Amino acid sequence: MASQGTKRSYEQMETDGERQNATEIRASVGKMIDGIGRFYIQMCTELKLSDYEGRLIQNSLTIERMVLSAFDERRNKYLEEHPSAGKDPKKTGGPIYKRVDRKWMRELVLYDKEEIRRIWRQANNGDDATAGLTHMMIWHSNLNDTTYQRTRALVRTGMDPRMCSLMQGSTLPRRSGAAGAAVKGVGTMVMELIRMIKRGINDRNFWRGENGRKTRSAYERMCNILKGKFQTAAQRAMMDQVRESRNPGNAEIEDLIFLARSALILRGSVAHKSCLPACVYGPAVASGYDFEKEGYSLVGIDPFKLLQNSQVYSLIRPNENPAHKSQLVWMACNSAAFEDLRVLSFIRGTKVSPRGKLSTRGVQIASNENMDAMESSTLELRSRYWAIRTRSGGNTNQQRASAGQISVQPAFSVQRNLPFDKPTIMAAFTGNTEGRTSDMRAEIIRMMEGAKPEEMSFQGRGVFELSDERAANPIVPSFDMSNEGSYFFGDNAEEYDN
Rank of each mutant, 00 (worst) to 15 (best):
M1S: 10
S3K: 00
E14A: 06
E18I: 01
R19N: 10
M32R: 01
I36H: 10
G37C: 08
T45P: 06
K48Y: 07
R55I: 07
R55T: 02
I57A: 05
V67W: 10
S69G: 00
F71G: 09
R74G: 13
R75T: 08
G93H: 06
G94V: 08
P95W: 09
I96N: 10
R102M: 12
L108N: 13
R117D: 07
R118C: 00
R121G: 05
N125K: 08
A129Q: 03
L143R: 09
N144A: 01
A153I: 13
R156C: 15
D160T: 04
R162F: 08
L166H: 05
V186S: 14
M191H: 02
R195F: 10
R199F: 07
G200I: 07
R208G: 13
L226Q: 03
Q231D: 10
A237Y: 09
M238F: 06
M239N: 12
R243M: 01
R246K: 00
P248K: 10
E252K: 08
D255M: 11
L259S: 09
L259C: 09
A260Q: 10
S274W: 10
A278F: 07
D290C: 06
F291A: 12
P303M: 10
S310C: 01
Y313K: 10
I316W: 06
P322V: 14
K325N: 05
S326H: 13
V329H: 10
A332V: 08
S335A: 00
S335H: 03
E339M: 12
R342A: 00
V343W: 12
R348P: 09
K351V: 02
A366V: 15
E369S: 04
D372N: 05
E375V: 03
E375F: 07
E380N: 10
W386I: 03
W386L: 06
G394F: 10
N395C: 01
Q399F: 15
A401F: 04
Q405M: 02
P410V: 09
V414E: 12
R416L: 13
F420K: 07
D421W: 00
A428I: 12
F429C: 05
G431K: 01
E434S: 00
M440L: 12
E449Q: 14
G450Y: 09
E455F: 09
Q459R: 15
G485T: 07
G490Q: 11
D491S: 09
